[in-house]
C-alpha cells in the first residue's frame, strides 16, 4: 500500500517536471559560469545562444505535437470521450505549458547570467533585444501552424519542412528589424488570429 503511494508520487507528472527543471537550471548555471570566459570577446557566439536552443527544441516539439494532434489523433480522440473543443483547448494548454516552462527557464537564465556577468540591463529589455520574446511567440505560432497543417491533411514531411522554413523566415525577418517591440507585437497578434482560425477549423472540419 505504502509502496504504491510512493510509486505514484514518484511517477507524478508535475514532480518529474519540477525535477527536470531543477536539473536544467543547475546545468545552465554551470554552463554560464564555465563558458563566461570562453564567450568573452567572442563576436560569433551570443551569450543567449544556449537559452535559444531550449526555445528551438520547444518549437520543434510544438510543431510535431500540433501537427499530430490534428492529423493523426483527432479522429481517435473523438471516438472516445474527447470533444472537438476539448482537443483544441488541451492542445493549446500543452503548448502554453511548454511556452511557460521555456519562459521560466529563460528568465532564470537571464537572472543567473546577469548576476555572474554583472549586467544591470532590465530583464525585459534583454528579452526583447536578444530575441527571446520573439522565440517565445514563435513556439506558440509554429505549434498553431502545425495544428492547422494537420487539418489540411498536408503530408508530414512537407509540413515539417514548411514549418522550419516559416519559423526560420520569421526569425530572420524580426532579427533584421533588430527585434523591435512592434515586430514582436505583430507576431503576437498573428498568434492570436491563428489561434482563432484553428478554433474555427476544429469546430467546422468534417471527419470522414
Amino acid at each position: 500500500m505504502k509502496n504504491n503511494k510512493l510509486k505514484r508520487f514518484l511517477n507524478s507528472y508535475y514532480l518529474q517536471l519540477v525535477i527536470v527543471m531543477i536539473i536544467i537550471v543547475l546545468l545552465m548555471t554551470m554552463a554560464i559560469v564555465l563558458m563566461r570566459d570562453v564567450n568573452r570577446g567572442n563576436p560569433i557566439l551570443s551569450r543567449y545562444d544556449l537559452i535559444k536552443s531550449i526555445y528551438l527544441s520547444a518549437i520543434l516539439g510544438g510543431a510535431a505535437f500540433g501537427y499530430s494532434q490534428s492529423a493523426k489523433s483527432f479522429d481517435f480522440q473523438l471516438s472516445f470521450t474527447t470533444t472537438r473543443k476539448d482537443i483544441y483547448f488541451n492542445t493549446l494548454k500543452k503548448v502554453l505549458q511548454v511556452t511557460l516552462i521555456s519562459t521560466i527557464l529563460s528568465l532564470l537564465y537571464v537572472v543567473i547570467d546577469s548576476y555572474f556577468g554583472k549586467i544591470n540591463t532590465p530583464f525585459w529589455q534583454i528579452f526583447i533585444h536578444e530575441g527571446l520574446l520573439m522565440m517565445l511567440e514563435l513556439v506558440l505560432f509554429i505549434s498553431l501552424v502545425g495544428f492547422f497543417m494537420g487539418f489540411i491533411k498536408m503530408n508530414s514531411y512537407i509540413a515539417y519542412i514548411l514549418l522550419l522554413l516559416v519559423g526560420a523566415s520569421i526569425y530572420i525577418t524580426i532579427d533584421y528589424f533588430d527585434n523591435s517591440l512592434i515586430a514582436c507585437l505583430i507576431l503576437l497578434a498573428s498568434v492570436i488570429i491563428l489561434g482563432g482560425i484553428d478554433f474555427l477549423i476544429v469546430k467546422k472540419v468534417e471527419v470522414k
Partner: peptide, 13 residues
Amino acid sequence: FDNSHYFKQRIFL
C-alpha cells in the same frame, strides 16, 4: 454534436 455530456457516455469504434 460536440456535446461533452453525450461524449462522456459513449464510444465509437
